[in-house]
């Protein structure tokens, strides 16, 4: 059984969480059992009941907290009222979706979401790559480990904490404003300015996640054959030429893959970051699709309408993921699931 996995490589399994070489294994397995005639259900149950029992709690939790609410999306086609319940709420067909299509605030939120994604693609996405190349050039292992430890850390802070820290640095009463005022300039408040909001959220994202994002690029850098560098150096290629002709091509597959996957997640910019700053900055700049759903539903009680918006976002997101994976396969990459 395990020889099958061995073929996908020891690291291959780890680096593809969704694939993990499973579909392939199962198919191979299937063809083998067809030849070898499947064992009767009873004997398989007797052999595997312990494994089944072990998987049960997780499967149960996923069924209850993932698949049951998935069905709850039917309220998007109803005029749902919590006092009446799903069973007795009247069905309204696609009315909610029709309203949604003519809802300006919905399109504003969509536009904001896409703008943020585009802005972060340009100003966040390259940062981990550059940082990884920089870290990789630190030759002293202990120093490198030390810096890595520090830049990974903010990934584990909550958004509340990150936004608070930024407020203390760049807010109206923050350190920067305070210092400026001490020196006779007027202070400013980056935290409530809708014009600079894109810069602010991107800076926050860089501070929190750019360090953590280097991990995958560092792994790719470590996998580059060192002999290539040596050969190039012997042939007289300068440091920069080596970076351009060896390092970058070595990183290319990972860059392409992550870029495609990010495009597939174009509608997901993260919820808490925007939820926390929406009031201070204002809806015009900070309303994204997720916060739109939240405010429309839980504050105004338009359950069905919010669910419809959420469903639209989910379905479009699904299509985007499927497309981006198709593209990833086209580039010869794995994507989040395997080509079938």
């Amino acid at each position: 059984m395990l020889s099958d996995h061995a073929k996908t490589g020891p690291a291959g399994d780890l680096t593809s969480p969704a694939g993990t070489g499973t579909s392939k294994d199962v198919r191979k397995r299937g063809s083998r059992t067809r030849r070898a005639r499947p064992r009767p259900f009873g004997s398989r149950l007797k052999r595997d009941w312990q494994l089944l029992l072990m998987a049960l709690p997780a499967i149960g939790l996923l069924l209850v907290f993932h698949y049951v609410p998935l069905l709850g999306n039917v309220i998007a086609f109803q005029d749902y009222s919590p006092y009446v319940g799903i069973a007795d709420s009247p069905w309204v067909g696609f009315t909610n979706f029709q309203w949604l299509m003519f809802d300006e605030s919905f399109w504003d939120a969509t536009l904001n979401t896409l703008t943020i994604t585009a802005f972060q693609l340009v100003f966040y996405f390259p940062v981990p790559i550059l940082l990884a190349v920089l870290l990789d050039s630190v030759v002293r292992p202990r120093l490198r480990l030390f810096i890595q430890g520090i830049v990974y850390m903010p990934h584990f802070f909550s958004w509340v904490l990150v936004v608070t820290l930024f407020q203390q640095m760049f807010g109206g009463a923050g350190l920067l404003s305070q210092t400026l005022r001490d020196h006779g300039y007027t202070g400013f408040d980056l935290m409530t300015n809708p014009d600079t909001f894109l810069v602010l959220v991107t800076a926050e994202t860089v501070w929190k996640d750019a360090g953590w994002g280097t991990i995958i690029f560092l792994a790719a850098l470590a996998a580059i054959n060192q002999n290539l560098y040596e050969a190039a150096a012997v042939d007289g290629a300068s440091r920069w030429r080596r970076l351009w002709h060896i390092t970058l091509p070595g990183l290319r597959p990972v860059i392409v893959l992550l870029l495609i996957l990010r495009l597939g997640e174009a509608l997901n910019v993260g919820f808490e970051q925007f939820f926390l700053q929406r009031d201070a900055v204002g809806r015009d700049a900070a309303e994204v699709l997720d916060t739109f759903v939240y405010w429309r539903t839980l504050l105004t009680g338009e359950w069905s309408y919010g669910a419809a918006a959420g469903l639209v976002k989910g379905l479009v997101g699904l299509v985007l993921i499927l497309i981006s994976n198709r593209v990833a396969h086209r580039f010869g990459e794995q994507g989040i699931y395997k080509r079938s």
Partner: peptide
């Protein structure tokens, strides 16, 4: 262990959660 009883449908159930989240409102209702 691939090939164990119900391995495939259960794994499928797990992996499918990557593609589609139920959304905030249905979660709240549940």
């Amino acid at each position: 262990r691939p090939g164990s009883l119900l391995h495939r449908p259960m794994l499928f159930l797990v992996l499918l959660t990557f593609l589609f989240g139920p959304g905030m409102i249905p979660n709240y209702l549940l």
